[in-house]
Design a protein around this nucleic acid. Sequence first.
DNA 1: ATTTCTATATTGACCGGTCTATAGAGTCAA
DNA 2: TTGACTCTATAGACCGGTCAATATAGAAAT
Lengths: 183, 183
Amino acid sequence: MTEKPSHRTNLVLTAMRLFRRQGYASTGLQQILAESKAPKGSLYYYFPTGKEGLAEAAVEMATDLICNTISDLARDHSDPKDFITAYCNVYAGWMEDSNFRSGCPIATTMLENAPQSPVLTKAGEAAMDRWMALIADVFETSGMPSEEAQTKSGQLVAAIEGALLISRIRQSTKPIRDVADMF
Amino acid sequence: MTEKPSHRTNLVLTAMRLFRRQGYASTGLQQILAESKAPKGSLYYYFPTGKEGLAEAAVEMATDLICNTISDLARDHSDPKDFITAYCNVYAGWMEDSNFRSGCPIATTMLENAPQSPVLTKAGEAAMDRWMALIADVFETSGMPSEEAQTKSGQLVAAIEGALLISRIRQSTKPIRDVADMF
DNA sequence: ATTTCTATATTGACCGGTCTATAGAGTCAA
DNA sequence: TTGACTCTATAGACCGGTCAATATAGAAAT
C-alpha cells in the first residue's frame, strides 16, 4: 500500500506539502528539489511539463489522502452527525499540529490556478467529485435520499473549506468546530 | 465618497483586482505598475514596505468593498433569509461576470500569507471581524439572540468562502446558491 | 510683485538575485 | 547496446527593491 520512496514519489510528496503551506506560485522548484533530495533531471524526466505536471500529481496525491481519511472515518462513524464531527476534528488537528499552516491540501493551488490552468482545474474537479461522492455515501447509507445526500455533501465540503481559510486567518480551530453544528 | 484617482488609489485598486484573480505571489509589481499606469517610484513612496504594504492596503480596500455591499443589502433585506439569498446572488454575479476568476477579494492572499505575514494576517482578521459583525447585526435586528447571531454569521461567511472556492473549480454558481439553503 | 530658497513629493533607471526551463553529455543497470 | 535516469551549465525573463535626480508648491526675502 505504501508507495516505495522513489525520487518521483518524494518529489510529489514534497510538492504537496509545500504547495499546501505556501501556495503554488511562491514555492520554487529549487526548494522542492532541495527538500525532496531529488535531482533536477529527474523532475523533468518524470514531469515533462515541469511545475504544472508536478502540481497535477500533487493534487491527485492530496485527493487520495483526503479520500482515505474519509473512508477511514466512515468505517468508524456510520451516523452522519458523528461522522461530520469526527471529520472536522481531523482537520482541526491538522491545523493545530501545523500552527495553522496546513489547511486544505489543494485550496491554495486551486485559487491560484483555477480556472486558468485546464490541467489543474480538472484535477481539482476530480478531487471535489471524489470527496463529495464518498461523503454522500455516508449520508445515503444512513437512509438519506440520494439527491439530498448529494446537496448536503456539497454544502459540508464548502463549509469546511471556508472554515479552514478562516481558521488560518484567526489561528483558531473554532470556525472548524462550528461547522459541525451547521448540520 | 468616491476616491480621487491618484496614483496611490490606482495602485491599490489594481493590486486588489490582480491579487483577487491570480493571487499574491504570482502577481508581479511590474504588472501592477503597468496596469495602474503608476510609476515605480510612487509605489515605494506610498508604501515603503513594498509589496506587503500594498497588499495590506488592498485587503483593507477589499474589506470596505464587502462591508459596503453588506450594508446596502441589509438596508433592502431585513429578513435574514432574504438577506442571505441576496448576498449569495451578489457573489454568484461576480463569479459569472468574471468567468469564475474573481472570487473573494482576500481569500487567495490570505491562504498564501496567513499566518506567516503578521501584517496581512492582521488585515485579514480585521476583515473577518467587520464582515461578521455586520451580518450578525442583520440577524440580531430580526430578533435573534446575540450569541446565536455571532455564531451564525461566522458559519455563513465560512460557507460562502468555501462555496466561492468550489464555484471557481467547477465553474458553476450552484455551490454558491446552495449556501442559501443551509440557513 | 518677483525672485530665491527649501522641504516635500515624485520619478524611472538600475541592481543583484531568483525563477522555470532547456540542452546535451554522462552514468549505469539490464 | 539500449533505455532509464542524472548531471552541469546556461538561457532569458522576471523578481522585489534601492536611490540619486528632478519637479513642485509654498514660505521667505527683496
